[in-house]
Simulated scan of single mutants.
Amino acid sequence: MQLSQRVLNSQFSPIRKLVPYAEAAKKSGKKVYHLNIGQPDVETPKAFFEGIKKYSTNIVYYSHSAGLYELREAFSKYYKSWNINFDAEDLIITTGGSEAVIFSLATVAVPGDEVMVIEPFYANYKGFAEMLNVKLRPVKSSPKNGYAVPEREAFEKAYNEKVKAIIFSNPSNPTGAVYTYDELKRIVDFAKEKDIFVMSDEVYKEFTFDGKKHISIMNFEDQERFILLDSISKRYSACGARIGVLATKNKKILEQVMKFAQSRLSPPLMAQFGTLGLLKDLEEDYFEKMVLEYQQRRDAAFDELSKIEGAVFQKPHGSFYISVELPVDSSEEFVKWMLTDFDIDGETVMVSPLNGFYATPGAGKSEIRIAYVLNNQELRKACSILKEGVYAYNQKRK
């Protein structure tokens, strides 16, 4: 018996595939500071759990395949508070933001089609594309200018007639870049000229620092070609709830996506109730406190990483990630070595090698992503260990 070429061609998660090395390090008695995965350490707001109590019934039933209407109304109100004019009928509640991405890709592209992506990108875009036999067409950004949107010429060079859409996250996972109006307009103008769809992953819209403001793709004209992808995972520290949103003003897309939504029956009911609690009953100062906390963490990580001689990066303005080009020959080998061969007083650190966040072969070989999801004291300690690790790794290889 043989397995499908589809699954054989798919990559393991570049974030999770090195977990066995971390588990072995812990079994050997080491403490591992986890900066490798975007799992916030802040408590999920009590409003989520109160929502489950408040809105639940005695039967865990199937909801509408598009999600509870009351929840879609609550999301509509939330988006309008961001000057994003979605009505409840423009939204489909998905099982996490991941399902929103999969549904979108499967709706706009067929096997053999291509989707442009600004790299480095959220690594699972590649996994989802491989699942659907869709190829990613990369446009590369650079750590030297903070991973800004590439110039128009780069998009032209990457484009071909098989391209059906472009997908990106803003603020960016994994780089922390927050795209300006002019950068987004560059994408919109290119998509309009080529008549392709734009899929904007806005999961981290609340996470902007230094006075930067998130600009939604829905603030531009030509909205029929836009699909907004969203999730409650990060902003509410509710990754395991698995509630996402696919939103668009294109009624034809919504009609076709509903086929997929009906095939998986419904998003998780209890998590929908919890999300109602978040959207209706959250403390008014929640986001203000959250953003302040993550900006302080960003500053702490940036300060410590700036002490690594030869590191190339700029201070990010959003999400809760920093991508850094390190002076190492292979970030993946370096990450493994940190877990197997290096510690300071029994402590080491795990980060994500960035090569798995690229579609271009060989790209990102010396880059890492750091998720600053620990408190300031632990974050500074972890980044300091990382700095010493870089030095020791390079001394070892001389």
Rank of each mutant, 00 (worst) to 15 (best):
N124T: 07
S306F: 06
F190E: 10
Y321M: 08
L71W: 13
Q39E: 14
D189Y: 04
K80F: 00
E206W: 01
G346S: 08
D189C: 06
E206S: 00
C239G: 11
K396S: 14
G356F: 01
P171C: 01
M116A: 13
V7H: 03
E325M: 11
K234Q: 07
L246A: 04
E206M: 05
Q39I: 10
G274D: 11
T44P: 03
F48L: 12
Q272A: 15
G67Y: 08
D90P: 01
I118R: 00
S233L: 03
G67N: 09
F226E: 00
E255C: 09
S81N: 06
Y393C: 15
G38D: 07
E332R: 15
S10Y: 02
A363Y: 05
D345L: 08
I196K: 00
E183Y: 03
Y21H: 09
N160Y: 02
I118M: 14
S104V: 00
F220E: 01
E114M: 09
S104L: 02
A359V: 02
M350H: 02
D222S: 06
G146E: 09
T208M: 04
I232F: 11
V291W: 08
Q296K: 05
M1S: 05
L278A: 09
L292C: 01
I84W: 06
G146K: 01
S63Q: 09
W82Y: 09
S200F: 06
K259W: 09
P327D: 07
N355E: 10
T107F: 14
L71R: 13
N133L: 08
E202I: 10
G310Y: 00
V188F: 08
Q256E: 15
I102Q: 04
E288L: 03
K164G: 05
L276Y: 11
S13A: 03
A191C: 10
F260Q: 14
E347F: 14
G318K: 04
F86M: 14
K251E: 08
V312D: 12
L3D: 06
I93S: 07
N160D: 08
F155V: 11
K205P: 00
T44R: 07
K365F: 03
Q2W: 02
A22N: 11
V335M: 04
N145L: 05
Y21L: 08
S233M: 12
F207C: 03
S323G: 05
D113E: 02
S231M: 07
L254D: 12
F226Q: 01
K387I: 02
V257T: 14
N36C: 10
L282K: 12
P45F: 14
S13C: 13
I344G: 14
P267M: 13
F75H: 03
G97N: 06
S76P: 11
S28K: 14
Y286S: 10
L3A: 07
K77G: 04
E183V: 01
N219T: 06
A148R: 13
E153W: 00
I215D: 02
R242T: 12
K53E: 13
F121P: 01
K194A: 01
L71S: 11
K280V: 03
E367Y: 02
N170H: 04
G211P: 04
K26N: 02
E224T: 06
K80E: 07
Q2R: 13
D189Q: 09
D329Y: 01
I187M: 05
T44E: 13
S13R: 01
K213M: 00
K17W: 03
L265F: 14
E183W: 03
L3N: 10
I59H: 12
V188I: 12
E193R: 11
